[in-house]
Design a protein around this nucleic acid. Structure first.
Lengths: 256, 256
DNA sequence: CGCAGGGTTGACTGCAGTCAATCTTTGTGG
DNA sequence: CCACAAAGATTGACTGCAGTCAACCCTGCG
């Protein structure tokens, strides 16, 4: 199945062809030759530590990024000096696309812990896409998916109840872990309560209370950053504003 | 400047080359020939009345749209039947891009009043973009700009104070009117208070109170849907959470 | 072992949501 | 052209959720 020659293995290990995330990054129809071209385009993986920035607000568009390990957050700092978290980026999720509209980054990307990223210089990406329709389509699709995540974020922020936002956040994170072949019901949060709060538009104490409440109700198990989802349907219900764990039975307080 | 032959005029009037929004839609380097090809691609303008839908949630991606007249909203309806407004789309602003990620529309587009749109079949657009690098770049840029607007939306929704959200909303709308060569400080809101509220994640009464407060403070003039911005700096200040109108002089109630 | 940073819990308060009444604007038909 | 109705917008009163302040706890690390 795979070349038995060790030297080749080492090369492949750093190549797109061998990357576990390839079907997320790459168009389906790319053949061996084209993939080689992509490979040469990818600048070698970069390593970052907790708090390191990949790009800052105002930086000219240079590249887009995919984490292979670790996670990132993108943030904006407003006039008052408060930090708003625009998004969290798990391995395999392209980010840095925010600069495509204006040519400059509108936010800052920060590693949430030890992390490595592939850097795709946008100029090369764009040039290759011109000649490679399947890559062009993929690029559009990936941008679309990124917009989908923004819409999900808007959806979360529009929820009135803090508890709904917290539940929706955990649910969404679980789905995203599942897509990268990690358990969607048992994971380690890469971000702090404070960062979650700044993402959800809540106070950090409110996030903490939300977690505790879900824990008490037996919906999830929380120990620090370790999350286990015990009752997915109940989490779904909590995300939709349905009060509680009782699926059958009593009439809800439908006052209106 | 313009062909004096009436017949031509009529033709031009319906063509991209004569559209007042062309530099928003079209890449800079498109020559006459290419523009002709774009023109044939654009399905003829469609007229809609208030409340008419252009596409609905779940519809397969067929086209993207630009209003030439009137405005649109895109909305999602959640399980509880509540409507969340994802965005408002003024003339010249491409929308419908939300389907590019998954192939299906994730929201519904509704005309806010009498409106006409250009419909750009996505298949043709994508095919032409393959051969026309400048169009491809423009397509990416427009998608990026659309993402920028989503980020602005997230930014608004993250604001704690309702008054900040309202001020930010008016300010943003003014800027967008200015970009389509309409006064940015004197305009008619195409949407209701209720729709604004569903966009800002507030109760409609809260939006109304926000307007009234800005009116009292002399920042804006409100008469129903007619908005005049009287004091742009004060509006900016209100959007940033700075309490009030007094640039020089007395300390505001800075309780904290 | 002690410290520091992050997380949890409690008490209190204020902002914005809800309910409700009134006013204004718009659109329709006599 | 006016009267009326219906929808939209404003204002007020009250309440509850979540923000703020503060104390305490836990966990990992030097």
């Amino acid at each position: 199945m795979r070349s038995p020659i060790p030297l080749d293995l080492v090369r492949l290990r750093r190549s797109c062809a061998d990357c576990s995330l390839r079907e997320l990054c790459l168009p389906a129809g790319v053949d061996r030759d084209d993939m080689g071209r992509l490979d040469t385009m990818v600048q070698r993986r970069r390593s970052l530590g907790r708090g390191d920035s990949l790009f800052r607000t105002g930086d000219p568009l240079h590249a887009v990024y995919v984490a292979t390990n670790g996670a990132f957050k993108t943030v904006v700092v407003n006039e008052a000096g408060e930090e708003h978290v625009l998004g969290f980026h798990l391995p395999g999720e392209l980010f840095g696309l925010d600069a495509i509209g204006s040519g400059r980054h509108r936010c800052q990307a920060v590693a949430l812990g030890e992390a490595t990223v592939c850097e795709l210089p946008f100029a090369s990406l764009s040039a290759v896409a011109t000649e490679l329709p399947s890559l062009q389509r993929q690029l559009l699709r990936v941008m679309g998916q990124s917009a989908d995540r923004d819409h999900d974020h808007v959806d979360v922020l529009s929820r009135r109840q803090a508890s709904e936002r917290v539940a929706l956040f955990l649910q969404g994170l679980g789905e995203r872990y599942q897509r990268i072949d990690q358990p969607g019901d048992d994971f380690q949060l890469p971000m702090s309560r404070d960062e979650i709060a700044r993402y959800l538009g809540l106070a950090l104490e409110t996030v903490s209370r939300g977690f505790s409440r879900l824990h008490e109700d037996g919906v999830i198990d929380v120990r620090g950053r370790r999350i286990r989802i015990l009752d997915a349907p109940a989490l779904q219900a909590a995300a939709s504003g349905c009060e509680a764990e009782v699926p059958r039975g009593g009439a809800r307080r439908t006052r209106a």
